[in-house]
Amino acid sequence: MEDVGSDGGKSAPVRRRAVRREAVENRARLLQAAREVFAQRGPDARVEEIAQAAGVGMGTFYRNFTTRQALVDELVADVRHRLLELARRARGAQDGTGLERLLRDAGRAQARDPGYMQFLWSRSTVEQAAVDEFLVLLADLLADAQEAGRIRPDLAATDVWMTLWSLRGILEMTRTAAPRAWQRHVDLMIAGLRARPDGDVGLTTRPMTVTQARRCIQEASH
C-alpha cells in the first residue's frame, strides 16, 4: 500500500523516487533527442532544438548538462565505447574472420543509429583511451585476417579505418530510398580487401599514417 502523509499526499520517500525517475527519463530523452537532431541538422544544431525535441524546457536541459559540450562529450563517450565493444567481440572470431565481422557489425550499428559515426572522432577528446584500444584491436584483426589469407597483405590498419569511416556517407545517401543498400556495399568493400592472386600488381600508393587518418576524420567532422 502506498505511503501517504498526513495531508493525504505521497510520502517524502515516494516523492523522491518519483523525482529521481523523472530525472532519469528526462536525461534519456535528451540524449536520444540529441542523437536525432544532430543526425538531421549536423553537429552545430542548437540546444534549444534538442530540448524541444525531447519535450523538456531549457532548465531541465541545463540541470542535466551544464554546457552543450557536456552533452556532446557524453554522446561521444557512448559511441566510442560501443565501437570498442564491437571490436572486442570481433576479436573472438576464428579463422581470421573478425575484421569482416567488425565491418558488418559497425554498418549495422550505423544503420540503427544515424548519428553513430558522426560523434566517433569529432569535437571531443573524451575516452581517447577507447579510441586507442580500438585502433590496436583493428590492427590485430587485420593481422589475423592477413595471416589466414583472407585479406591482401599490403593493407594497413588505416586503410581499413578509412573504409569503416566511408560507410557513413553510403548510409546517409541510401537510408531513405534503400535502407539495406549498405549491406551490399560492405560486401563490395570486403571483396576489395580480399587477398589477390600472385599476379596482382599491388597497391601503388603508400597508406596514410594514423596521425594523417586522425586529422582527415577530424577535419571531415567539422
Rank of each mutant, 00 (worst) to 15 (best):
A53F: 02
V76S: 09
R196P: 05
R20Y: 07
A156G: 06
D200V: 12
L203N: 09
P197M: 08
E147H: 14
T67Y: 01
Q32R: 13
A54D: 05
I217T: 14
R63E: 09
F65N: 00
Q32Y: 04
S122G: 14
A28Q: 12
G9V: 04
R215A: 14
L188P: 04
R68V: 02
Q218A: 11
G57M: 12
E100H: 06
A45C: 07
P179W: 06
Y62E: 04
N64H: 14
L102D: 06
R104Q: 08
R152W: 10
D7K: 12
L164W: 01
F119T: 05
F38R: 00
L164I: 12
A12M: 03
M117Q: 13
R150H: 08
Q69H: 03
V72C: 00
D200A: 14
G55P: 10
E74D: 11
A157K: 02
R108L: 15
A33E: 04
M208N: 11
Q118F: 05
R68W: 01
Q94M: 11
L142W: 03
A93W: 07
E74H: 06
P114M: 13
G59H: 14
V56F: 10
L141W: 02
T174W: 01
F65T: 00
L141T: 01
A213E: 05
A18I: 11
T158S: 13
T66N: 00
R46K: 13
F134D: 01
G9A: 07
T158L: 05
L164Y: 00
Y62G: 05
V210Y: 04
D159L: 11
R27N: 11
D140I: 00
R168F: 04
Q146A: 13
R112E: 15
E36P: 02
L193T: 09
A18Q: 15
P153G: 13
V37G: 00
